[in-house]
Design a protein around this nucleic acid. Sequence first.
DNA 1: TCTGGGGTCCTAGGACCC
DNA 2: TCTGGGGTCCTAGGACCC
Length: 415
Amino acid sequence: MCLHYGQTLGIKVKKTVPCFMHSDLDAFYASVEQLDHPEYKGKPVIVGGHPGDRRSVVSTASYEARKFGVHSAMPLTEALKLCPQGVYIRGNMKRYQEKSEEIMAIFADFSPEVQQLSIDEAFIDITGTEGLFGLPEETARKLKNRVRDETGLTISIGIATNKYIAKIASGMSKPDGLFIIPPGGEEAFMRALPVSKIWGAGVKSQELFRKHGLKTGEDIFRLEEETLVSIFGKAFGNFLYRAVRGESAHVFDDERGSHSMSAERTFPYDISDGFALETAILDMCETLMWRLLDCRWQSRTVSIKIRYEDFSTEGAQESSENPVRDLNDLYERLLRLFRKKYRPGRAVRLIGAGLLNLENSSVRQTGLFDEGGEKERRLEEAILEINKKFPDAALHRGRASLAEDLFDRGGPKRS
DNA sequence: TCTGGGGTCCTAGGACCC
DNA sequence: TCTGGGGTCCTAGGACCC
């Protein structure tokens, strides 16, 4: 016996039940392409790369393309085999960002509490908005209609008393779906759920489910908490125990921990030339420094990542007392790490660099010995400003522009 | 079919201190 | 000479998500 949203427990006691919508745009990038190019409508559209792009993967496949078995994260070469007649597109993030902002603005009209999860997803807290928009189902229909009419895109919505279940619910009836878990129905919903739908359980956890004969939430429900912890580890074991009881998981709580930023690059062809690799690192330094200054963050910890031809991956990180000062400083730190880690001569398919434990740069102690650094940083900020205003100017600090040649020509041609 | 790029969180082990 | 037990910080690697 379930209570429905809007029903009250008694005549005198009116209890407000928390109510969250999770909205997910359907095949977002592919849908935007079909919107902007009507000739693509009804065709299998695959965003991620052009045929012949080496080492690309599918970013989004339209529903027409999914019928051929094409899905996200699939290597493009495989998609091409399954769906040679598809429309292949590299994608235009700027345009997708624009559409995303339009939709988020619509969400904001329905609630002040919108939590954007990614470019195409958000939680909307509609607790207590009945007076304005009606019952949750009605609210969801209004929202879906506005998104469709004003942006030409469709969304799928899940509704539940907690975010975790709302998130799973939005995936239950895609595309253009609406799925509601009434208050009190959380546990029943989770117990009936096939384990493949449990959010947070990827390839490795699915293997463990299989190995232990766990097919549904019910099977997990029947296990002791200690048993789950012994199979899945402390954090995920506890998480599963609570999740199948319909309890709110705290994975989507607003206050999130540390932030980081990173840039990485997979080369079209493996590179084993040290100079070329170091040049690639310099190029990523520029990207990172630009973003760091742009969002007014600072960091004391830098990291590098090296993926070799056999896909084995190694990383290294190093913290120092002082935050990264400028481009040169960042490059020197990364280079030191890289030289410590890289075994010369080995072929590299990917190189990455990152800044960890970002904090607000207002807490920066402007050091006594920082005068040279201050000048350097001002210069960098000026260059970044110019690049922002005139994207085609592409000002650089020298060697990094070399890296672009390296990437654009499909690998270094050495004689 | 060889497997992108940008993130977050968890685990386990070592260093160091009291 | 036989090496306890926290707490905290750092590092490497892995799982997972969109």
